[in-house]
Amino acid sequence: MAPPLTCDRNFSLEDVHIEGAERIAEAVAKYDIDRFIHVSSYNASKDSPSEFFRTKARGEEIVRSIFPETTIVRPAPMFGYEDRLLNKLAGVTNLFTANHLQERFWPVHVIDVGTALSTMLEDDNTASETYELYGPTNYAMAEIAEMVDKEIFKRRRHLNVPKMVMQPTAKMLNQLLWWKTTSADEVEREFLDQVIDPNTKSFADLGITPAELRNYTFHYLQGYRSSAFYDLPPATEREKKEEKKYLHVIDDQ
């Protein structure tokens, strides 16, 4: 059986998340590096039905066994320039889904994650700790998609395909096409909501207040607007203006 594929068909998830992490940890231990931060993933679990999350969890175990002072970081799905969240939802090729966009998670600003990593490097008290970094609000993917549509003044269609059809199709396309499409494991992850581990630390332990997604959709999606709408205000500002107009009409009545 061929190894499971990532976006690069030369390496499997095990190659990257386990063997790759092991080599880095061995180099850190060998050369007596002071601080080592291992960026894992939300939902990392050895019992997950997703191979991505299982191999992430195994990678965490290995780096800690080699270098116990490792700081492990599990960021939620991140938003920012060239992200795979807002840009994916705004793109014309994001057409098919298998779970009606019902996956739920706490999206986090990439800038906040970067700030947290920088803070950890300077704070020895973060050594050997595990941090889950996530935003302040839990969203369903469908709710984020609706925000994206309002911001870009376009309606992106999302056709739902049953999981039993979508998974084998994604697997076949991933093997046949050389460009990035999707994978059977990505389909599996659509059915896995983010679960917060209560035994881990978070932004609060670093003195950081995470940003709210809806305050940045305009900032990162303006380029998807047509020229006719390019300079209009963000959706949140438009909604506030409409609400004020509505309340004004009610008061007059």
Rank of each mutant, 00 (worst) to 15 (best):
Lys46Ala: 14
Ser202Val: 04
Ala127Leu: 11
Gly59Leu: 01
Ala29Arg: 06
Ala21Asn: 07
Lys30Ser: 04
Leu101Arg: 06
Lys46Pro: 12
Ala44Glu: 03
Lys171Ile: 06
Gly20Glu: 08
Thr55Ser: 01
Lys163Phe: 13
Glu132Asn: 14
Val73Phe: 01
Ala140Ser: 11
Pro75Leu: 02
Ala2His: 15
Asp32Leu: 09
Glu143Met: 03
Cys7Gly: 14
Asn94Ser: 15
Leu85His: 00
Ala142Gln: 03
Arg156Trp: 01
Tyr246Ile: 04
Val39Gly: 00
Asp34Lys: 05
Glu132Trp: 08
Ser40Asn: 06
Lys163His: 12
Glu146Cys: 07
Lys46Ser: 14
Arg9Gly: 05
Tyr216Pro: 04
Pro77Arg: 06
Pro168Gly: 08
Asn43Thr: 01
Tyr139Leu: 01
Met1Gln: 14
Trp179Ser: 08
Val92Arg: 12
Gln167Asp: 11
Pro233Thr: 05
Ala21Phe: 02
Lys56Met: 13
Thr97Arg: 08
Ile37Tyr: 08
Glu237Leu: 07
Lys241Asp: 05
Ile37Gly: 04
His38Glu: 00
Pro77Gln: 11
Glu132Gly: 11
Ala145Gln: 02
Lys201Trp: 05
Pro233Met: 04
Gly80Gln: 08
Val63Gly: 14
Lys88Arg: 14
Asp47Phe: 10
Cys7Lys: 15
Ser118Met: 12
Val110Gln: 11
Asn199Tyr: 06
Pro107Ala: 00
Asp231Tyr: 12
Phe11Ser: 12
Ser183Val: 01
Met120Pro: 05
Arg64Gly: 13
Leu177Pro: 02
Arg64Ala: 14
Tyr139Arg: 08
Lys171Asp: 03
Glu61Pro: 02
Val92Glu: 15
Ser118Asn: 12
Glu190Ser: 06
Lys240Leu: 03
Asp83Gly: 06
Thr169Asn: 04
Pro49Ala: 10
Gly80Ser: 08
Gly20Asn: 05
Ile72Lys: 12
Val108Lys: 01
Pro4Met: 15
Glu122Gln: 14
Glu237Pro: 00
Met78Glu: 13
Asn43Ala: 03
Thr97Ile: 01
Glu212Ser: 00
Leu86Asn: 10
Tyr220Ile: 00
His158Ala: 02
Val161Trp: 11
Thr93His: 14
Asp251Val: 02
Met78Trp: 12
Asp205Ala: 09
Asn138Cys: 07
Ile24Leu: 03
Asn125Val: 07
Thr217Lys: 02
Ala235Pro: 02
Phe11Asp: 08
Phe203Ser: 00
Lys150Val: 05
Lys244Ile: 14
Ala76Gly: 13
Glu190Asn: 03
Asp112Trp: 00
Asp185Met: 06
Glu132Cys: 14
Arg155Val: 09
Leu5His: 15
Ala21Ser: 03
Ala90Phe: 12
Thr119Pro: 01
Ala228Gly: 05
Ala90Ile: 14
Asp83Gln: 01
Ile144Leu: 05
Ser50Cys: 06
Glu151Ala: 07
Asp32Asn: 10
Glu22Gly: 02
Leu232Asn: 05
Thr217Asn: 03
Asn99Gln: 06
Lys171Arg: 10
Leu173Arg: 00
Phe53Gln: 07
Ser128Glu: 08
Asn94His: 13
Leu117Arg: 04
Leu176Ala: 12
Ala57Val: 04
Ile111Lys: 15
Thr119His: 13
Thr200Gly: 07
Val161Pro: 04
Pro49Val: 07
Gln167Trp: 10
Arg58Phe: 05
Met172Ile: 15
